[in-house]
Design a protein around this nucleic acid. Structure first.
Lengths: 142, 142
DNA sequence: GTCTAATTTATAATGGTTCTAAACTAATGT
DNA sequence: ACATTAGTTTAGAACCATTATAAATTAGAC
């Protein structure tokens, strides 16, 4: 839960002007008890349903990408045509339910720490992401 | 290294007719010492350079997807606009070099076995994929 | 060879994302 | 308060990777 003035500070300190549109999107994304996953499409739908004012699709794309760049969102790519944004920016992993297309955060202790024994010479590790794909126990259909 | 007759069998046993186009693509993809990663674009370029005959882009898409569906290829999605296919269909993980856009297989012992302590009730695990993003040690540029 | 269903093909259509350039607005200085 | 400037928003066009279409071709079976 964050207040409007906190969003203004947050945006300003990261070099983004706190515009009306960005603040509305902040409220929708960050003024919550729990973090969540969304697609651009989800967000656009949410905005047009919940808000009295319209925000241009271009602005939605711009804002989400700006927030990602500033580290307020993480992108989780499932496959070439399904990409989610995550308001949980801590290091964590995911289950992906292939039946329901649901992306589910792993709790602290559901996945043990991934041990990287040898990294590529001269490179530093930016992230380690585990994606566990699950589906109904019944025989997989093709 | 596989022979043409082996590809014919492989295709036939999986219910795919061994057409001239599919066999050519099999040769390019599977007639190698080492497995590798490619994008559809890479493959299309490869075909137009190395082959005397033209294969329609639609056929390339169809074939790659058919091969994936039959389990002869795995798809590795890096982000919303970068997706690779992998001729290594064994369980393994990847490094992704964000400087060079190179996808690199992890050797057997570079990443320890990922421990899944709690799975989602009633679901079976289809795959566990780890992607380690690396980049030059020098300060990350935005 | 004949038949049928699968496959290939060129091309059109699709649709999500990015680009454009004009209008608007936040921030700063006067 | 006003003027200026650079950043932002906007609608709509453009882009482009992928998929759909429907006609031509081909593999497999008889």
């Amino acid at each position: 839960m964050q207040k409007n003035s906190e969003f203004i500070d947050k945006l300003r300190t990261s070099g983004l002007r706190p515009t009306r549109q960005r603040l509305k999107i902040c409220e929708l994304l960050f003024n919550r008890d729990k973090t969540f996953h969304f697609t651009i499409n989800d967000l656009a739908r949410n905005i047009s349903e919940k808000l009295n004012e319209k925000i241009s699709l271009a602005t939605i794309y711009n804002t989400v990408h700006a927030f990602k760049k500033k580290g307020y969102l993480k992108e989780i790519t499932i496959n070439s045509d399904k990409s989610y944004f995550d308001t949980n920016i801590t290091n964590h992993h995911h289950f992906y339910d292939e039946d329901t297309n649901q992306l589910i955060d792993c709790n602290n202790n559901e996945i043990g720490k991934v041990k990287i024994k040898n990294n590529i010479t001269g490179k530093k590790i930016n992230s380690v992401e585990v994606l566990v794909r699950v589906a109904s126990d019944i025989q997989n259909q093709n």
